[in-house]
Design a protein around this nucleic acid. Sequence first.
DNA 1: CAGTGGTCTAGACCACATC
DNA 2: ATGTGGTCTAGACCACTGA
Lengths: 259, 259
Amino acid sequence: MIMQYNAAPDDAPGRGAGSGPSPQPLYRQVKSHLVHRVLTGEWRPGEILPSEIKLAEEYGLSQGTVRKAIEEMASEGLVSRKAGRGTFVTSHGTGRRPFRFHRLRADDGQKIAGDNVQFLHFRETSATARAAAGLGLPGKAPVIETLRLRHYDGRPVLLELICLPSRRFPGIAAALEAQRPASICLLLERRHNVLVTRIEERVRARMPEPQERQLLNLAPQTPVLEVERVSFSLSGEPVEWRTITCATDSIYYASNSSD
Amino acid sequence: MIMQYNAAPDDAPGRGAGSGPSPQPLYRQVKSHLVHRVLTGEWRPGEILPSEIKLAEEYGLSQGTVRKAIEEMASEGLVSRKAGRGTFVTSHGTGRRPFRFHRLRADDGQKIAGDNVQFLHFRETSATARAAAGLGLPGKAPVIETLRLRHYDGRPVLLELICLPSRRFPGIAAALEAQRPASICLLLERRHNVLVTRIEERVRARMPEPQERQLLNLAPQTPVLEVERVSFSLSGEPVEWRTITCATDSIYYASNSSD
DNA sequence: CAGTGGTCTAGACCACATC
DNA sequence: ATGTGGTCTAGACCACTGA
């Protein structure tokens, strides 16, 4: 891996190698390389990275340049830095990460999370048009479909229909059924070394289907909120599609500019 | 204004003044001061700040320290930096800022904006419980209430009920009625030197009121999305409360983690 | 051409955590 | 005591902008 950063279009003596186009600053090249090393599992979630000094020596750059690379990774949530200790690969298993994507709140402001998850079915099927579009798959590609019901305060409140591309995650059906994990993100991270770093959601209002009305125990004429979510891995690949359906008498969807 | 940054709890020779507790790093003190100067109108939206070098001289610090302060301001959207030109106070009147808070999209992904705004009424009234709570006002405090209807593709799609605290923004009723601005943010910025930098939104599904159904031209049994928004100024003060009601047959609410 | 922000270096001291 | 990230400095070269 050759790091270079020349400004001059032709052969000016910047630093490092002589010529050749190199639009990316050094610290971004370092960042890309470090991200790749995290993704390929050189350091697993929760593990510590080498210190800035060691990395600077390894890349033959100054500490400040490596620092800037790591700081960008930290600001994107891929690693977290602890003064006096070191830099750690973030994990959905530890820290505040698991809650970052939960935007549904009870009226008292409490996040709807916790372990009150009931699995209604697992199914190997072919993707619906919407799911395929969200996942960037060809129509009718095979997916693992999971239906879950979350409870809050003793009442069923959230219905989640989750689709995972089976070809991308071989063997995940069995793992899902065996572990019934409360966090799909954590499963993707542990089993497939895929870190979910970004989600896109679309929220709509609609009337519930009869089955939904029954599962969520809704009064007649009660509309529901439908959240359609696509989760993306760090490399930008869509890895999960789901719709969340919920009654909105005591639940709302919260959104802050700049999270 | 005294800048100091001592580490030692008692009198160690850090730099600058001798003792005294100073938990904030220098660059944050600089940032706070610069933010204050922007807020008090020393540099108006769209205007250019002094260069890093001049500010460093003014504060008696190194360029790197001032740079870090400005970089934080830029990452929060208060200023924007242009290589070769300078640092500018961001404005809702120019640049991409006006769209940052528009989360409602048409099904084709187009943002619902533009000038298709119809003003239905202006009214001086006392705040409802919800509006007062959102604005942090005592119950029944006086507010200016505005009702607007936005069109898209020739059809009415968004109904906005906007409340502004009249005591905080004297004379704004007349300005609203005279200018009928498409952007309230811009009005607050121009008339009152208040920059909206953050919003909080709560989204719910519900059935429309008869008047809403009529204004939005909705079929019976069609639920609507209700977005309740509080806008905050840079200093964290709530400055506007509104609810946006919209049909969701061809409109959705978009939300991305990390905007 | 002079001035701006963008990048990079080398070195220093600090608080904090761990051993 | 050692090593970590956090802050700060001083200086350098660069690309880009606009006069």
